[in-house]
């Protein structure tokens, strides 16, 4: 029996979560395979919400599959596709279906995805969505109406440690904490010196504002090739893969770049844990969920 993520966050020294993506289409066999593969190996499984604005099976449906297969899901919920009615309805539905954790996100813009002509919603922002979760937890909705039965979600959000400039990002981080975020899963980190500096700033901010316990899990995105690393550096804001890591990937024997990527991820996780840089890691193996156990083994966490 898996434990509630809320309890794990409180009790465990080093928390590990991983991300899985729902299929585009109704064949969930791969998704179920990933759930079964990872359910007992990590503390909770995030499910993306139409990731990169590409239409797929909903996060909620996949989270329900995780519940049915004995895992602990984290519902990712973005503000891109739903107005405040639909967001609240989705949250109530998630609770009814046994989902206990929610990660509140702004969401990518629609034009990066596979339906670029779609109307973007963004009725609420991620801070307001976090507040909305708190209202539902208190038994009322965003309009102040009473609910027949409240939720009791553990809410989290994201932060980009390498955002440039960082100050406005920290303003929003503080607002998210005040709006009820109890855990953060960060954008990918690769340069741990820079991440250390971010954590110092974040911890100072939390202490100054006397904010309650907030757990931060460092985002680990699996590097699959030098090309992918370069692509992220050029096209994904807030991700900076250092040249030294790209060289390691370039230097890999033919067909072995992924193996090197797994070693890099394992090494990062090991170092984060040894130096207690933060409270855990969130592994995003985008499309290579199959290899998450290998990353955990490299990290000494298997």
């Amino acid at each position: 029996m898996v434990r509630l993520f809320r309890d794990v966050l409180q009790e465990k020294d080093f928390v590990v979560t991983a991300e899985i993506g729902p299929p585009k289409g109704t064949d969930v066999s791969r998704l179920v395979h990933h759930i079964e593969l990872l359910r007992d190996r990590v503390d909770a499984l995030n499910v993306t919400d139409n990731q990169s604005s590409v239409m797929r099976v909903s996060s909620l449906a996949a989270c329900r599959l995780i519940v049915e297969h004995g895992g602990e899901p984290i519902l990712q919920l973005t503000c891109r596709d739903r107005n405040r009615l639909a967001l609240q309805s989705e949250l109530l539905s998630a609770w009814v279906l046994g989902v206990r954790n929610v990660l509140c996100l702004t969401g990518d813009y629609v034009t990066v995805g596979d339906h670029p002509e779609a109307k973007p919603v963004f009725d609420l922002d991620s801070v307001q969505l976090l507040q909305t979760v708190q209202y539902l937890n208190q038994g009322r909705d965003l309009a102040g109406n009473n609910l027949e039965g409240a939720t009791d979600f553990l809410a989290g959000s994201v932060v980009t440690p390498e955002a440039d400039p960082l100050e406005p990002q920290l303003v929003k981080f503080a607002k998210k904490v005040r709006a009820g975020a109890r855990f953060f899963q960060t954008q990918a980190v690769y340069d741990l010196d820079r991440f250390r500096r971010f954590m110092e700033q974040a911890r100072r901010l939390l202490a100054q504002n006397q904010m309650g316990p907030v757990k931060i899990l460092a985002g680990i995105v699996l590097l699959t090739s030098a090309k992918m690393a370069r692509y992220m550096n050029e096209h994904v804001p807030g991700i900076m893969v250092p040249e030294s890591l790209i060289e390691q990937l370039t230097g890999a024997e033919k067909g072995k770049a992924l193996q090197v990527g797994i070693q890099i991820a394992g090494r990062l996780i090991r170092q984060i844990q040894q130096e207690r840089l933060c409270d855990g890691v969130h592994i995003m193996a985008i499309g290579k969920e199959e290899r998450v156990p290998d990353i955990l083994a490299e990290a000494g966490l298997a």
Binding site: Y109, V112, V127, V159, A163, D164, P168, K172
Partner: peptide
């Protein structure tokens, strides 16, 4: 582009907007 009222999204990019890098990040 996302009408954000409480600060920038994660797509803010060296002062530019990820949706259109020609535009400044409003936040």
């Amino acid at each position: 582009p996302k009408n954000l009222l409480n600060g920038p999204c994660g797509g803010t990019n060296h002062g530019k907007c990820e949706v259109n890098p020609e535009n400044d990040c409003a936040w």
